[in-house]
């Protein structure tokens, strides 16, 4: 039962760079349709961990399964099965909205016969139909963010990784973006998200906190606040995530 619902399975995962241990025996599971928050101070080992989960980096030792694929031997297949969006959106600024959608649909191997239909569907959902010929460069930041997220999940991945997706946008846009995240999770896509905004940690079903290469806490925001006697996730984070400089 649990195995069926586990989208990411991590056991004793280690990544070393020379003598430096960036990730030190990480173990956790992420379940289907869950919003999983991944927090930690700069340099705690978050980025290295995400790069392994996305198939971009080969782990040193341990076990890793992502969407049923092996994190050591099937890294190319993992890359095709997941979605990824970072703060630096991966949109092409000098292509139009429509061209960007076609490009990503092509890259992710959406069959030609449904590509057109999918494109129109997406334009309509994002209310970008009238802006289809606009260069992405000329779109407001909030629209770019919505487009980048929708393209990251255009191939219906079972999991999407969001690496600090909401930095710098205004508070309304930031919340509209979380509406999209909720919607994706509601539709069964697992969302793995890192953020520096502690209020966003509260939107997650479960949160893992990393410090100095280890996971020092993993639970629901509610349970973490109770355990660490804090009124907010900010309080929990300050108690747990010692800067390791």
């Amino acid at each position: 039962m649990e195995k069926e619902n586990t989208v990411i399975r991590v056991r004793d995962l280690v990544k070393k760079f020379g003598h430096f241990v960036a990730d030190d025996h990480l173990s956790f599971d992420v379940y289907k349709g869950e919003i999983f928050g991944f927090l930690g101070a700069n340099g705690a080992g978050k980025t290295t961990a995400i790069r392994m989960l996305c198939g971009l980096l080969e782990p040193t030792s341990g076990e890793l399964t992502v969407a049923g694929l092996d994190g050591f031997k099937q890294r190319e297949a993992i890359k095709r099965r997941i979605g990824y969006m970072s703060q630096k959106f991966s949109l092409y600024e000098d292509l139009t909205v429509h061209e960007n959608i076609r490009l990503f649909a092509g890259i992710y191997g959406i069959p030609t016969r449904i590509r057109r239909e999918k494109t129109e569907e997406l334009l309509e959902k994002l209310e970008l139909t009238s802006a289809r010929k606009k260069l992405v460069r000329d779109l407001p930041l909030g629209w770019k963010q919505k487009l980048a997220f929708s393209l990251a999940i255009i191939h219906d991945p079972s999991i999407v990784f969001l690496d600090e997706p909401s930095g710098g946008v205004d508070p309304v846009t930031r919340r509209r973006f979380w509406d999209l995240i909720y919607e994706a999770a509601h539709e069964g896509i697992t969302v793995f998200v890192t953020t520096h905004y502690m209020d966003e940690a509260e939107y997650c079903d479960r949160v893992a906190i990393m410090s100095a290469g280890k996971i020092v806490a993993l639970d629901t925001p509610e349970a973490l606040k109770k355990e660490w006697d804090a009124t907010s996730m900010d309080g929990v984070f300050l108690k747990l995530a010692r800067s390791n400089e």
Binding site: A41, N42, A44, G167, F237, L238, A241, S243
Partner: peptide, 11 residues
């Protein structure tokens, strides 16, 4: 403090 974690921001 942009892009800086909550602990470093506080410091």
């Amino acid at each position: 403090t942009t892009g800086v974690d909550a602990v470093s921001r506080k410091e």
